[in-house]
Amino acid sequence: MEPTLHEGDVLLALRGAGIRPRDVVVVRLPPDPAGLPRPVAVKRIAGRDPDAPERWWVDSDNPREGVTSFDVGSLEQSAVEARVIARIWPRPGLLGRRERP
Rank of each mutant, 00 (worst) to 15 (best):
P50R: 10
D59F: 02
E2D: 12
V72K: 10
D9Y: 05
V24G: 00
A82Q: 11
P63N: 01
S69P: 07
P39C: 02
A79P: 07
A82E: 12
G93W: 07
A86W: 09
D32P: 03
V67W: 10
R87E: 12
T68M: 03
R98C: 01
L5P: 00
L5N: 02
A82K: 09
R22Y: 08
E76N: 08
G93I: 12
D49T: 10
D32V: 05
V72W: 11
L36C: 05
P39N: 03
V80T: 15
R64A: 13
P21K: 08
P92A: 12
V26Q: 07
R87W: 05
V40W: 10
T4R: 10
S60L: 09
A82C: 04
R64K: 15
R98E: 00
G96D: 11
W57K: 07
T4E: 09
V40G: 01
L12M: 10
V27S: 02
A13N: 03
A46P: 00
R87F: 05
R97K: 15
A79T: 14
G16Y: 02
L12F: 05
R87K: 13
D59C: 03
V10R: 11
P21C: 08
V72T: 13
R97L: 02
D23V: 01
R44I: 08
E99N: 03
R98M: 01
E81L: 15
A34M: 13
W57I: 15
E81D: 09
G73R: 12
I88D: 12
A46K: 12
R44P: 00
E7D: 12
P50S: 07
D9A: 08
P33C: 07
V24W: 09
S78Q: 15
R83N: 02
A79D: 14
M1N: 02
P101C: 09
V25T: 09
P3H: 06
P30C: 02
R83T: 11
G93V: 07
L29P: 02
N62P: 02
P63K: 04
V42Y: 00
R44C: 00
S78T: 15
I19Y: 01
L14G: 00
A41R: 09
R91Y: 06
D71Y: 05
A34L: 14
V24R: 08
G47D: 08
P30M: 03
D61S: 01
D9W: 03
T68K: 06
I85D: 13
I19W: 02
G47T: 13
L29C: 04
R48T: 06
R64N: 10
S74L: 07
G93F: 04
R28L: 11
E65L: 14
P21N: 04
A34D: 15
S74A: 14
G18L: 11
